[in-house]
């Protein structure tokens, strides 16, 4: 076990030295007119096995940091004989992304990694910027089972070798999240075993949605070799939470008043107006009597 881990670290270190892109997301900068253009590239493989390259391009000058909109970015794969993956324009946040066609045969290096590159040519008076990232493609298998009435999350990591054989991803740490409104909530960690590349952890109770559904995500994040890879599954493991404020119809702060208030007000108004109407009637009577007297006179 121990020697295995050490060898992994050595491999890692070597790959960091020899593989050109040692970082999972690289940034490049170029300066013009006092503005520094900054380009960053990252790679994400989502739960549907869609590989996406994401790019953000900004221009910075002192305090001002503005995203570049409508910038044309070219995405390539491979080092020497690079393959053009596609061209995308950035949106108003300086962001562009490209989904990599899974049917393409991507040029790999000896370690099985693919080098992705993005280029921005800029306009006449600006310099080129490029960013690169090197990624080894892996697959995660996520299984959610109740083993001896213990809810267990199991993850298996695999990659395809040079000759098409399936190899385990050994010793990799990954994080288990549940999906939340704004961010993912970490609920555990898994270390893939050194032999089979399998790891598991227990799921502890956590609120789900109104029917108890919960989305469990296994994720390797910003890894030097594998970049970001995630796998998720929905399951009815969450405790059911219902929050019903609609039952509070007649409160002090709702639109409709508590019944007793309405009743009290009604009593008050009825009481007063009953007497006021009586008085009105009597006043008319006085007038009628007066007219009668005048009529007689």
């Amino acid at each position: 076990m121990k020697s295995n881990r050490i060898s992994t670290i050595i491999v890692l270190l070597i790959s960091m030295l020899f593989v050109q892109a040692f970082s999972y997301a690289q940034e490049d900068e170029a300066e013009y007119d006092g503005y520094i253009t900054k380009l960053s590239l990252s790679y994400i493989k989502n739960t549907n096995n869609v590989k996406t390259l994401r790019c953000v391009i900004t221009a910075k000058k002192g305090e001002i940091n503005l995203p570049l909109e409508n910038a044309e970015l070219k995405f390539y794969a491979g080092n020497e004989q690079s393959l053009l993956l596609g061209v995308q324009k950035t949106n108003n946040e300086g962001f562009a992304s490209l989904d990599i066609n899974n049917e393409l045969k991507l040029p790999q290096d000896d370690s099985g990694a693919v080098l992705y590159r993005v280029e921005y040519k800029g306009l006449e008076n600006s310099k080129d910027v490029t960013a690169e990232v090197s990624v080894v493609d892996i697959n995660l298998e996520l299984s959610l089972e109740e083993i001896d009435s213990v809810k267990t999350i199991t993850v298996k990591g695999t990659r395809i070798g040079k000759n098409g054989e399936i190899l385990p991803v050994k010793g990799q740490d990954l994080t288990i999240y549940v999906k939340r409104l704004y961010t993912n909530l970490k609920i555990g960690e898994i270390n893939l075993s050194e032999d089979e590349g399998i790891g598991s952890t227990e799921f502890k109770s956590i609120p789900g949605d109104s029917v108890g559904n919960i989305l469990i995500i296994a994720k390797i994040e910003d890894n030097e070799l594998y970049a970001t890879v995630e796998k998720s599954k929905e399951i009815k493991w969450g405790s059911i939470v219902s929050y019903d404020r609609t039952s509070k119809k007649r409160e002090l702060w709702t639109n409709e008043a508590p019944i007793w208030m309405a009743i009290t007000l009604a009593i008050f108004l009825l009481g007063v107006w009953y007497h006021l109407v009586r008085v009105f009637i009597k006043m008319r009577k006085i007038k009628k009597l007066g007219e009668q007297i005048e009529g007689v006179a």
């Binding site: 221009a59 001002i64 503005l66 909109e69 409508n70 108003n92 306009l123 600006s126």
Partner: peptide, 30 residues
């Protein structure tokens, strides 16, 4: 053109604060 993308970004720059005044935005060619 390149522009700040939201009102918050625009007003974040103190020099830009004010009402009917002109404001500077950065075009793509810098």
């Amino acid at each position: 053109i390149l522009a700040a993308t939201s009102a918050s970004l625009l007003t974040s720059n103190k020099a830009f604060a004010g009402n009917s005044e002109k404001i500077k935005v950065l075009t793509q060619d810098g």
